[in-house]
């Protein structure tokens, strides 16, 4: 390669690097950031993508969404690494507030869990209204079941249901994935397995899966979402003021209406708790 060509590459590289460096330094001046830890089910459903831009536009606050399982979201809140959490595991939420990590818990919305499985339904659970009975049949027929196994709200509910069925699931038919809701639905689809999902995520992915709802309607499958501000007295630097603003927005008429009107594939995914 000729010397001039080499020099050109060098000059271009130096120019490109210095430009990008300046650019990255220049863009670090931040708007106000509010860190929201939430579940993969709310993120994967796409609800936050219509809800948060409205809030951001009204207040100028930028909401940073960190989508993890409910267990991890609660841990991030306990640790003070986020300002506000939106999760679905009522008992764990109450403990979180009782222990002083969170303040001002609000019911936000709800939907329900459904048991998904392949159309041919080897465990014969179709139409069962009793979720624990359905779990028993899956286990006794040794049909593949994929567990989130990530301490998410869905996983916590699943463990409860196994307990109520009197089974401690183990064996090759019980697969612990350790992944988010969307990933587990895709896995279950590929492996023709059963899984527990929140209805919202399932509906939002219906065009990507052949799984069908086989069991639903059990009162134990109720899935309420709560929102909790992290206690600013536990840690320094918690953005409590903006967390309150977000809670006010989400529980306002406007926020609740957006939740109610959010549809995917023609179906409502979440039901607001504050207005009917």
């Amino acid at each position: 390669m000729s010397q001039s060509c080499k020099n050109f590459i060098l000059a271009a590289a130096v120019f490109f690097l210095s430009q990008s460096f300046l650019f990255s330094v220049g863009t670090t001046e931040n708007p106000r950031h509010l860190k929201l830890a939430t579940t993969t089910s709310t993120e994967n459903s796409g609800l936050l993508d219509v809800l948060l831009p409205v809030f951001e536009k009204e207040t100028g606050i930028k909401v940073d969404v960190i989508a993890v399982g409910t267990g991890k979201a609660l841990a991030l809140g306990e640790n003070g690494d986020v300002d506000i959490i939106m999760v679905h595991a009522r008992a764990r939420e109450d403990t979180f507030v009782e222990q002083g990590f969170g303040v001002d818990r609000h019911d936000l919305m709800h939907n329900d869990f459904v048991i998904l499985g392949p159309e041919n339904d080897p465990a014969e659970i179709k139409g069962l209204g009793n979720a624990a009975e359905a779990f028993k049949r899956i286990s006794s027929s040794k049909s593949s079941f994929i567990s989130r196994a990530d301490d998410s709200g869905t996983n916590i509910k699943e463990k409860c249901l196994w307990q109520e069925a009197g089974i401690s699931p183990s064996g090759t038919w019980y697969k612990e994935a350790g992944q988010g809701m969307g990933a587990v639905i895709i896995m279950a689809n590929d492996m023709e397995a059963y899984t527990l999902s929140d209805r919202g995520t399932y509906l939002s992915m219906r065009d990507k899966t052949d799984l069908v709802i086989l069991s639903e309607g059990d009162r134990r499958l109720f899935n309420p979402y709560g929102i909790i501000a992290v206690n600013p007295e536990k840690h320094d630097g918690i953005n409590f003021e903006d967390a309150e603003k977000l809670i006010n927005f989400l529980t306002s008429k406007e926020g609740q209406r957006i939740i109610k009107n959010y549809k995917k594939n023609g179906q409502q995914l979440f039901y607001p708790d504050v207005i009917e």
């Binding site: 990255s24 670090t28 950031h33 860190k35 940073d64 960190i66 640790n79 003070g80 690494d81 986020v82 840690h235 320094d236 630097g237």
Partner: peptide, 17 residues
Amino acid sequence: ISKNAPFGNLGLLFSPG
């Protein structure tokens, strides 16, 4: 850089920094 860690007060976790 987690909140309770030595550099937690810098608020770096979950940021470009």
